[in-house]
Structure formats: C-alpha cells, structure tokens
Design a protein around this nucleic acid. Sequence first.
DNA 1: CTTGATTCCGAAAGCGCTTTCGGAATACGT
DNA 2: ACGTATTCCGAAAGCGCTTTCGGAATCAAG
Lengths: 340, 340
Amino acid sequence: MSKVTLKALSQHLGLTEGTVSRAINDYKDISPSTRERVKKAATELGYRPNSNARRLATGKAECVGFVLPWQAGTISEPFLGELLSGLSDAISARHWDLNVAVSRSAKDELSIITRLAQSGRVSGLVISRTLSHDPRIEHMQNLGIPFVSHGRTASPEDYAWFDIDNFGAFREAVWHLSELGHTQIAHIHGPLDYNFAASRLAGYRRGLLDRNLDVDPAMEAKSDMTQDGGYLAMRYLLTLNQCPTAICCVSDMVAVGAMRALREHGKMPGKDVSVIGYDGLPMGEHTHPALTTMAQPLQMAGKHIGEMLLAVVDGDDPKKHQELWNATLTRRETDCPPPS
Amino acid sequence: MSKVTLKALSQHLGLTEGTVSRAINDYKDISPSTRERVKKAATELGYRPNSNARRLATGKAECVGFVLPWQAGTISEPFLGELLSGLSDAISARHWDLNVAVSRSAKDELSIITRLAQSGRVSGLVISRTLSHDPRIEHMQNLGIPFVSHGRTASPEDYAWFDIDNFGAFREAVWHLSELGHTQIAHIHGPLDYNFAASRLAGYRRGLLDRNLDVDPAMEAKSDMTQDGGYLAMRYLLTLNQCPTAICCVSDMVAVGAMRALREHGKMPGKDVSVIGYDGLPMGEHTHPALTTMAQPLQMAGKHIGEMLLAVVDGDDPKKHQELWNATLTRRETDCPPPS
DNA sequence: CTTGATTCCGAAAGCGCTTTCGGAATACGT
DNA sequence: ACGTATTCCGAAAGCGCTTTCGGAATCAAG
C-alpha cells in the first residue's frame, strides 16, 4: 500500500498535483528542469501512481483479459505456458496487466466476457480454442470490445485473429505419407466444433484427393484432445478389416495414445504403422519411438497475439490484423514406408 | 464500455447515487422494497459498476496476482493449467480478478512484485517454484502484502504456504523400491535451489538410511526439470561401473527422458531397471511402459491456495494457513524387482 | 518600450463509486 | 397526546489521479 501519493509528492516539491502529474507523464508543457526534478523526487520517495485512480481518471483499463475455456483434461497444456508467457511479454512491455479468467462452460464464458468488458476491467480480450461458429466473436463485437482470437472461425473476415494453417498442415502430412507409399491413411480427429479440428480433417481429406486416394469415412476416427481419446480411437481403427498403415493424429497427445494402442496390439509405431502427430511438443522427442509431427511455431505466438491486440486496442482496423502461420513437418521416427 | 452509470440508474429511479449504491451493496439501512426495486432496475438497465471507480473508492484491489517465473522449458507445464483453473475458481467465486504476471528472472520478479503491490493493483499474491532460501518471501513481508507460497522455503514458520510432502514422497519411493529387492537405487534430482528438489533428494537419502542402504553421491545425478535433462542424467548413470537397478526421478518429465536413455542403452524400463517418477501426470499412463510415479494431488491445489490467500487477505493470521498434502505411490509398469 | 507569441505552471472540474453523517418521516412506548 | 426510538434516505465529502483552461511570467519582434 503505497503511502506516497501524488499530493504528498507535490507538496514535497512545492508544486501542484496537476503539474507533478503532467511532469511524470511527459507533457510538453512542463519545463525540462522541473520535469527532471519531479522524476528524481518521485523515484527517491518511491512514488507509485495508484493504478485504480489512474484508470478511473483516464477511462483506460490498462489491462487485457485472457479467457480460457476449461473442461478438465481437454486442455492442450503445452500451449498455455508459452501463450501466457508471450502474452505477458507483450502486455507488460506497456506496463499493462494480464487478467486471466477461466470459464467452465460456453455460457459461462459469455457472461465472463460481458462482465470483464462492461465493468471496465479490461480494454481488450484474447480468446482461444475458437469454434467454427463461435458465439463469442459476435458477442464481443456487439460489446464493442477490441479482441483477437487465437484461431479462426469459419468466416474470419471481419475481426482480428491469429492462426496456424491447419488445413495445409494436414494436407502436407498426407502428402508425405503418400510419398512414402501409404495408401491406407487414417485420421484421428478432434471435436469438430473446434475449427482447428475441422480444418485438419478437411486438410486430411484434401491431401487424399491430391494423391487420388479414396476418402473413406471409416478411416476417420473421432477423439477428444486427450491421450485416452487417441488410445480409444486407435483401438477402433484396429478393428477395421482393412487396417490403416498410417495415421495422422490431430495432436501429439492423441498420437501418443494411439501409439500405445498400437503397441498393445503388437504393432510397432514407425515400423508396422506410421504415425504423425501435430504440435511439435518437446515431449515427442522422448516417446518411443520418437514422434514425427507437424510442428507449429508457438514460441512467439503469444507475444505476437499480444501485440496484435494492443494494436487493435489502439484503434487499428481489426481486419488488418489477421495472421496465418505455417506448421512444419518434423520427421522423427514414426514415419516410414508401409510394411511390404 | 458500460454507459449505464450509477448516476443514470439513480435518476432513473428518482433516488440518490448513494442510496442506490447502498441498495446494491446490501446495506441494512435500505428498505427491502426499494432494495428490490433498485436491483430490478439495475439488471434491467444492465448496470455494471465500474470496477476502477469502486476499487478507488474502497481502496480494495479486488484482485490477486499470480507471478510465475519463466525460464523457457523449465516450466512444469502440467501444473499451470490446473493451478490457474483452481485459483480462478476460488477467486472468481468472490468476483475478483486473477492477474497473471510472468517474470524472466529473479530480479525481474522482485520488481514485478513491488509494482503490483505498491500500485494497488492486487490485494494479494501467490508465488510458485519456491526456493529453499527465497528472497521473495521477505520482500513481500516487507511490502506488507498478503501472500501464499506454493511450496515452502527452508524456514517456513511465519507465512502462509501450501506444499506437498516431497521428503516423505521420496522416502516412500525408496522404501518401495527397496522392498522390491533393490539395493542400487539412484536419484535424478532437480536444481537444488528449488526447495522441492532439495527435499526430494533429502527424502531419497533418508529412505536409503531407513533401509540401511549406502548413500552414494555417485548415484545422485543432477538434472534440470526437462526431459532432456533426465535423458542426460541417465546417460551419466549408465556410465557407472556399478550400474543402478532402480532410479527415482524428480519428476515424470525427467523420468520420461531417463527411460529413453535406458532404451537406447538396451535396457528395458520396468524390466531391467525400475523407474519411479513424480507428479502423477496423465501422460505417464501412455509412456511405454506406463510410468510408476508418486502422484501429487494437484486438482484441488489451485482452488485451495486461492482460498487460503483470500483468508489471509481478509486478515487471517498467515501462520494458520500452512498445509502439507501427501503424494501417493501410483504403481504402473516401471517398478519391478531387480533382474536376478 | 510596447505588442504578440511562447513557456510554464496553478486552479479546478471531474472520473464513478463508497460511506459517513444527519435529519425527516414513521414507529413505538406510556 | 407526548417524547423517544427506529427506519430509511439525501447530502456531501472524498478515493488519487488526469486534463482542460487560463493567466502570469518570459521571450522575441516591431
């Protein structure tokens, strides 16, 4: 609790509060000499402007919110740390705050967004795990609060977003598998209301078409985003009479689960069956065998998203801030030609 | 941006701002009838009190800060999500905010704490990854800001903390291994300035003594908290002429790395060599073979820590809020008797 | 030396809400 | 009927900072 208030500082200096305030905020109508004097005294006395007073006076929240959906286990953990770290970097460069809110349900999330926005607690938001048809987008637009979405919806024309080319990534994965000689390529996909999952499935199918391979619904297994999900989906695929020789999985986590099912079934990943994951988690280097994956660049993503948001908050046209990055095939040990 | 202000609402009702305010905040000097009338109108007009104004007036930040150290890769990701989720739960039950700040260095972190506290942005803090001798503790005490530490220091008498009995966990792990018949038990430990790492090492040693086994410094390999670290440490242990038949690792991540090194060396984890991890990550169920581990209960930890902090912020004696939980041995497939 | 332009700072009005205080209106007691 | 308690609400003073406005002092120009 800072006892050094503007008033205290100002009468210590024999100046008005207004003058001191302007000096600190680098107004040009303050002489350089007194400005220096003020700043010096400020640091000496350890003056810290009260954020709430400042925010009230300026009407700016100096804070961005990050609301993340939380259905236990379903979370792609690895992202979180990197994302938060990057966001925090961008945000704190401006001495703003990062307000993290966890929602328990979709409805919950909408009301959280409303509260955050209407109570003036945040001046911008970033959301993640975007759905193909995501009510949050319109909701935020109606509220008139700046935001950027980590992931696109199906119609991403008029708002700011950051995304990875999921479609392209899986198209490439299938191409790669096909080049190796595979013709029976399966896909374990995630919940299709997530746009990234839908895109990856679409990319997978397109990849098949590119290579004149059949698109067979039986080769598409649904899973949640957990290892257990991948395990179960793979077990299903193993019941097929025409068993796939290659699987591309919606995520590394899912791939790990799938590999376990394969091993239990006596099949060696990377030998009897090829497996390709997605994410490029460091974890994949240490699975047995090491997991081939489409690695997405998430180290700088958070920071980038943060900067995009700041730009939008500053008044930039959201449409100017739409970025699509690419994943890159990272070959390790689980991709190989089909057994002869 | 809420346009419905207290003033608007009050003159809409033909009341004073003060009266409306008290009605909304359930002051007892407002008649039940008008209170209802006010609340009804409030929700109808969609009134949202401006948080910053409220915070300024009350002097309460209605916000707790979570500052987490970030040296890329070193993070125990799995915690983050659970922790944040739990914290957010506890915090938002009171309609408070969760301010997350990421620090890049120890020095950085101290200044972040200072800023957060002195600018009145938070009314309490939680820190994590506590060191045996952690400057943050004293720093926060000096600042007079309420806090709870996730993890204890070496002298945890006079502040609030939440911790797992790391010492006991590793003591138990060694006991278990010894019961299985092992006598050559190694330990891959984490950076010893982290108190949890030091405690686990101490617990390991104590476990050895319990069973009248030798404490051999050569059997203690240092690692960082990553899979790579575990890999490298294990490779070192494999160079010993007296090779260990069992390894207890400071974390599941580290254990996974160690298992990889073992496999590369032609040794099968859970068969030729026993491996025990720590954390109980779901991931461990899907490693090959599934990882035996000391599982720590982190599902409710975050919420609990949040509630502890709220209590301390409310004025509770921090000393009354010190909790030690236990990890539990979760046997999967990597613990077995030593090969004969 | 006067005039008009600059510099630089003081004064004051908020930002939107909370909270103490006092008093009018109503209730209670005898 | 009186006086004394209670209820319930209006009035007003902040919380600590920002920002517009105007004016005194300093400057350059005629």
